[in-house]
Design a protein around this nucleic acid. Structure first.
Lengths: 123, 123
DNA sequence: ATAACATATGAACAGTTGCTCATACAATCA
DNA sequence: TGATTGTATGAGCAACTGTTCATATGTTAT
């Protein structure tokens, strides 16, 4: 509605192709959804977390094993697992003092596979 | 090979499930590919860049129009377009003083769609 | 030429991120 | 009980990121 009025002052140049802008504006997803999408990708945008998730594609693992596998500190892994848990990408299960982490949603693999395809297409 | 020897000193705890670790280790993609994947997602991990790309799904646009559409500074958009160009996600075409940006690879949309599906599944 | 406009770019700054280190917590075992 | 082991967590920090601001570049119009 008054989207246009809101946006005028920030852009320091003239709108050149108003029809295009209006059409695209009408087809953009909600601001909040795009923000959430960016937040999801932000979580994927760290190689430690990518490695953890990829490891969990194969099997549930405890913190110690993941740390060993990735050649990293238990603390570093634990911190990252917390991030992954907060964003509902992994869940955990306790067995004595050992905590096993696994994927919350196997769907993630498809996103990674799509990403891999993109990377492979680069020359 | 000597992967195991290499990694021993960093992990400050005992490996508990050696069979699991070894199996997973054997099935992990190359370090570099996982790094590249993280780099790709890192680019997607910013809502400004997500918005720009989503806009370009619809139509090629010039810098000014994108800035207006997203209610942001021309400079901010220009900086982000540079990032997207460097990572080969967008290309541009010059027409007089106007520079039109468009997607380098329509494939990206599929990654975004997968991400959107994941977000929607959250309660 | 000079002015106007679209875009690019470098410096600077605030905010964020991922790790380390020390330590706390929790479960098991002696 | 105390010692050991697996995990979690807070503080601190160096590195990075995204924006703003000022200015440069390049094109068109007068």
């Amino acid at each position: 509605m008054s989207n246009k009025a809101q946006t005028v002052e920030r852009c320091d140049c003239t709108v050149i192709h108003e029809e295009v802008v209006n059409r695209v504006m009408g087809r953009m997803p909600e601001e909040e959804r795009l923000y959430d999408l960016a937040e999801l990708f932000k979580v994927f945008g760290d190689s430690t977390r990518i490695k953890i998730l990829w490891a969990l594609f194969e099997s549930e693992m405890c913190v110690c094993d993941i740390a060993y596998l990735l050649n990293m500190t238990q603390s570093a892994i634990s911190h990252q697992l917390r991030v992954l848990k907060q964003t509902k990408l992994v869940k955990n299960r306790k067995e004595g003092k050992i905590v096993f982490y696994s994927l919350e949603d196997e769907h993630i693999k498809q996103i990674f596979d799509q990403g891999m395809i993109h990377i492979s297409e680069d020359k």
